[in-house]
């Protein structure tokens, strides 16, 4: 095991240090660790190349002399091997360090820790205390964020079983365009392949593994999409007018776009993103909230109240 790591490190050094492409023969003759019959060496080298590539090290294949049909040669370009962040200041290193430290030491936290070690290796001191912010921890919630982000980068299709509001599980097929986290939940937005509309899904409602496959070849991110907006599974722009008692119904108030005082009551306006959801918050507040408009929301509230009376009387 030690031999293999040693050989891989030596191969990396040799391919990084060389100015021209090294042929296999040169590698076998000079890099420590290649032993055995020519076939064994050949097999070792093929595996080593694959291993280095899987570590993210890009090996270039080129020809010694393009005029002759020469043996292929290999090298690693410094600029591709190195972390090329350009000129960075101590403040920038501090910002990046804080960004890496934002991850809880869960699975993705290990990834962030490795990034932090690389940042520290740049050798510019960081002073995180100089940044006036305290941030809360990010958690991947056990989700495969890597798979989702790769799919966004490559416009792949994602298929997953999703728990809808009636508790039935349906297969969804989506080309993802954004991933965001708010209130501790992860949200995945994408173009639903069944109806070509943008939908947002809460990632923890995906009931089992996500599979990625090649997406539609002509996919373009819909213009004007803003991932920072409030997520909703079925967007709508109707407004609700609700009376709330003074000093009460804080969770309805936080949704309001405007408030008008009526003495003992305030009248607030709330954009309706999801009728059932809003109805449920109104009911939660009991006699402290009263729906004026629209009729659809009033009717829904009244219908639920009648059922509550009947079921509990």
């Amino acid at each position: 095991m030690s031999r293999k790591s040693e050989r891989l490190v030596n191969l990396t050094i040799a391919l990084l240090a060389t100015k021209r492409y090294l042929t296999k023969t040169e590698i076998f003759n000079s890099v420590e660790g290649y032993e055995g019959t020519p076939e064994t060496k050949e097999r070792m080298f093929e595996r080593d190349k694959d291993d280095l590539r899987s570590l993210g090290i890009d090996i270039e294949v080129g020809s010694f002399d393009p005029l002759f049909n020469d043996e292929a040669g290999y090298k690693i370009k410094q600029e591709k091997y190195q972390f090329e962040l350009g000129d960075v200041s101590s403040i920038e290193i501090s910002l990046l360090s804080l960004a890496a430290e934002a991850w809880q030491e869960a699975s993705f936290g290990d990834v962030a820790q490795r990034a932090l070690l690389k940042l520290r290796s740049i050798g510019i001191p960081s002073d995180e205390l100089s940044i006036p912010a305290t941030i809360h921890k990010l958690n991947d919630g056990g989700q495969d964020l890597s798979l989702i982000t790769k799919a966004i980068a490559q416009s792949q299709s994602l298929a997953f079983p999703y728990l809808d509001s009636t508790l039935s599980i349906k297969m969804r097929s989506v080309v993802p365009i954004a991933l965001s986290t708010r209130n501790g939940f992860w949200y995945l937005s994408g173009v639903d392949q069944d109806n070509q509309e943008i939908r947002t899904f809460r990632v923890d409602r995906i009931s089992s593994a996500i599979t990625a496959s090649e997406g539609p070849g002509d996919f373009k991110t819909p213009p004007g999409f803003d991932s920072s907006k409030v997520p909703s599974e079925s967007p709508s722009h109707d407004l609700a007018l609700i009376d709330v008692r003074v000093g009460k119904a804080s969770s309805l108030r936080t949704l309001a776009t405007s408030t008008q005082s009526l003495g003992e009551w305030d009248q607030i306006t709330i954009p309706i993103l999801n009728l059932d959801w809003l109805c449920s918050i109104v009911l939660w507040h009991g006699p402290d909230a009263f729906v004026q408009e629209p009729a659809s929301l009033r009717d829904l509230v009244v219908e639920h109240l009648a059922a509550l009376v009947e079921n509990h009387g």
Partner: peptide, 11 residues
């Protein structure tokens, strides 16, 4: 330092 991986960049 080595270049960052996709996952490290995302983090």
């Amino acid at each position: 330092p080595r270049s960052i991986t996709f996952d490290e960049g995302v983090a």
